[in-house]
């Protein structure tokens, strides 16, 4: 069933409530096993969390590197989870996905990944995660709604070094950004650079979390780094 609904992800709105993880496990196509990733970016120093769903690439790298033709794409561009009879559990897809999405269930010898709740979206319903997300980090609906109610701009093009990746799922970013410039240089501990590469994670969630920091110094001098919340 076709709708004009699209998936929009804004990881910066995530509050780490795990509702998406619980809901994902209810999906009929992978019942009992959540496929969404909820990452703590730098747990010792930051509360920043990041939900990662499959972005459903137009030319999916995971499917191309599969040696057993196990990953198929439907007519609407949804990249399916590995076909059970074909998957040989080689982990090529896990390693090659630019967004780090596929999960290898070692005991099942089967790759499983977000299929945008195919049992639901194929009949016009919303994916489980987007249904329960309280902060709008995961939104599934008409593009007009997003454009009207958000200051961020949805994009679906990503630059991974020399590789441009176009996706079905949109990422919310700054209005001036047309193609998401994925940067790795700042995050790698190059020679003679000792800092933790992920220390660029923000210390607190904006808005609500920032206001929750009960530190007079930080409130008085917001440009200084606050105590991790």
């Amino acid at each position: 069933m076709e709708t004009n609904y699209e998936f929009f992800v804004d990881q910066s709105r995530c509050i780490g409530c795990q509702a998406c993880v619980q809901a994902c496990g209810e999906c009929g196509t992978h019942r009992g096993t959540p496929m969404i990733h909820l990452e703590f970016v730098d747990r010792s120093a930051s509360v920043q969390t990041a939900p990662v769903v499959c972005m459903h690439c137009e030319d999916p790298t995971c499917a191309k590197v599969c040696p057993a033709d196990a990953i198929k794409q439907d007519d609407n561009g949804v990249v399916m989870s590995a076909a059970k009879p074909r998957c040989v559990a080689c982990s090529n897809c896990v390693m090659a996905c630019p967004f780090g999405v596929p999960k290898m269930k070692v005991e099942f010898e089967l790759m499983m990944k977000c299929d945008m709740c195919y049992d639901r979206t194929s009949v016009g319903k919303k994916p489980m995660c987007a249904t329960v997300c309280p902060s709008g980090a995961l939104y599934y609906g008409p593009r007009e709604y997003i454009e009207k109610h958000r200051t961020e701009q949805p994009i679906n093009e990503f630059d991974f070094g020399g590789q441009k990746v176009k996706t079905k799922v949109n990422l919310m970013t700054a209005p001036e950004v047309k193609s998401f410039p994925f940067d790795v240089a700042d995050f790698l501990p190059w020679e003679a650079q000792e800092r933790d590469p992920l220390s660029l994670a923000r210390a607190g969630v904006p808005d609500a979390a920032d206001n929750a920091i009960w530190n007079e110094d930080v409130i008085a001098h917001p440009e200084s780094e606050g105590t991790p919340v």
Binding site: Q11, Q48, P181, D183, V184, R202
Partner: peptide, 21 residues
């Protein structure tokens, strides 16, 4: 990019997005 583990890719994805915003 193959020299970066999938978990770090996911984290970088989030930090990159946050920085742009």
């Amino acid at each position: 990019y193959q020299e970066i583990c999938p978990r770090c890719r996911r984290k970088m994805f989030a930090v990159n997005q946050g920085r742009l915003l």
